[in-house]
Design a protein around this nucleic acid. Structure first.
Length: 434
RNA sequence: CGGGGUGUAGCUCAGUAUGGUUAGAGUACUUGGUUUGGGACCAAGGGGCCGAAGGUUCGAGUCCUUUCACCCCGACCA
């Protein structure tokens, strides 16, 4: 993409209501803009990042044997009355009426719809297990949306549901999904922890959360410094009466706090702040029994499905990447999430040699299917650098005054290092870096 | 949903206690010129139903009433 053709409205100042780095930088960088309380538009850069995350989620789930579906976003309220969740979810569910005065709900989650979909279509143990998911808009009418994409009312979530003929098989799938989620978050380039969680209102026995470690995380978790044990403090009796106190502490304060008890492996435990980006539950027969979704087992007996449910906050991940990867100048995208891997910066657009080299390199990288931005704008060097740092391209090729000596520079956004390199080697070097 | 706050240019904000020229600044935008390695400088421009509706008044951005929106603290939450 040429910068001169792109729609990337960057800004020097952030809206006054943005407090978190991800909120500020995503708006300043022209990734998103706010449409209303908890409602955001994704502009081209934001849309690219969102799609990249969505694609990685889909690829890993499909490899693990899941099938993607798409459920209707508007659902009749009767669907929710049958499970009794109409009451439980309360005002979180946005209700609307059609022209016939029939009441509908914008889906906040889809346990009921998915059970209804499978009910009477899968009727034998021979057709199990089954794992269906969708990556679709959700709407929860939060009392207080905040923190930009981290807590919107409308958001993109991947929600998956699995159906099994036995608890054992459901647990097997649960463990498979834990591993799959680890692959997803690892591919995204995130530092994360899997922790034991409180299963909350959705119910069920086993429940694990996936937290991206970041100063601004809303949850406090404890993690072992040695093994992979971790837990949300909400689940630990020792902390139950101190949750509010601990949640209020800053990241720095928490690091100083010692956890009295040791991990079962014998090592020390530490407090961390986390952003919840994934949650997996063992549901059992809670919904299948309530909605009478049954199958026939080997003995011809009718039983409700054993179920599990799996969520990933896709739009929240866009913000979580930045909460974990930013500096005072802006975004630092991971390689898997960067909207463009390389930015070719022509320092002086009036310099024909700079322009020619920029165009040539741009074309060459595009031919090699590298996601590349050509900054062919008329702004000055400083403006372009600030802009590149704000947007967070992993690499910027600076074509500038050193070109007279046959050199350009490659700027690494994460390390902030500038490396001079001969023009003849810049293509190979970029291909090696990405 | 309780408590508090804010709505004035695309964005950040003055101006409102005490009503009174043509409503301001910075930034962004347009044009011309000078610049060209860290969000440049000079000059000239365009851009506002002062959130909305009603009211008080000779006169309302400013006072009164109603309403809507957004934000913050709590409670709740992927």
């Amino acid at each position: 993409m040429r910068r001169s053709r792109a729609f990337i409205p960057t800004a020097k100042e952030a809206p006054s209501d943005a407090t978190l780095p991800s909120h500020k930088f995503l708006i300043r960088g022209g990734f998103i803009n706010q449409q209303g309380a908890g409602l955001y538009n994704f502009m081209p850069l934001g849309k690219i990042v969102l799609e990249k995350i969505r694609t990685i989620v889909k690829e890993e789930l499909d490899l693990a044997g899941c099938s993607e579906v798409q459920l209707s976003f508007v659902t009749p309220i009767s669907l929710w009355e049958r499970s009794g969740r109409c009451e439980a979810m309360g005002k979180e569910m946005l209700r609307i009426k059609d022209r016939h005065e029939n009441e509908f709900v914008l889906s906040p989650t889809n346990e009921e719809a998915m059970v209804e979909l499978v009910k009477n279509r899968v009727t034998s143990y021979k057709d199990l297990p089954l794992n269906l998911y969708q990556i679709n808009t959700k709407f929860r009418d939060e009392a207080r949306p905040r923190y930009g994409l981290l807590r919107g009312r409308e958001f993109l979530m991947k929600d998956g549901y699995s159906f099994h003929s036995s608890i054992e098989d459901m647990v097997r799938e649960f463990n498979l999904m834990e591993e799959t989620y680890k692959k997803i978050f690892t591919r995204l380039g995130l530092d994360f922890r899997v922790v034991a969680a409180d299963s909350g209102a959705i119910g069920g026995d086993g429940s694990k959360e996936f937290h991206v470690l970041a100063d601004s995380g809303e949850d406090t978790i404890i993690v072992c410094e040695s093994c992979d044990y971790g837990a949300n403090i909400e689940t630990i009796d020792e902390f139950k009466d101190k949750i509010d106190e601990l949640n209020e502490k800053s990241y720095e304060d928490l690091k100083e706090l010692k956890v009295a008890q040791k991990c079962s492996c014998g090592a020390n435990l530490h407090f961390k702040k986390g952003i919840e980006v994934g949650h997996i539950f063992q549901l059992g027969t809670k919904y299948s029994a309530a909605l009478e979704a049954n199958f026939s087992d080997e003995n011809g007996r009718s039983k409700p499905f054993e179920m599990a449910t799996f969520g990933i906050g896709v739009s929240r991940l866009v913000a979580a990447v930045i909460e974990q990867n930013h500096d005072e100048n802006g975004c630092i995208w991971t390689k898997a999430t960067a909207p463009y891997m390389v930015n070719i910066m022509i320092s002086n657009i009036k310099d024909v040699n700079q322009v020619n080299l920029g165009e040539e390199l741009y074309e060459k990288l595009q031919d090699s299917h590298v996601e590349v931005m050509l900054d062919d704008g008329k702004e000055r060097f400083g403006f372009k650098m600030k802009d590149a740092e704000l947007i967070g391209f992993p690499y910027t090729v600076i074509i500038g005054k050193e070109l007279e000596g046959g050199l350009v520079q490659i700027y690494d956004r994460r390390t902030k290092e500038n490396t001079a390199i001969n023009v003849s080697q810049v293509y190979d070097k970029i291909m090696e870096l990405i």
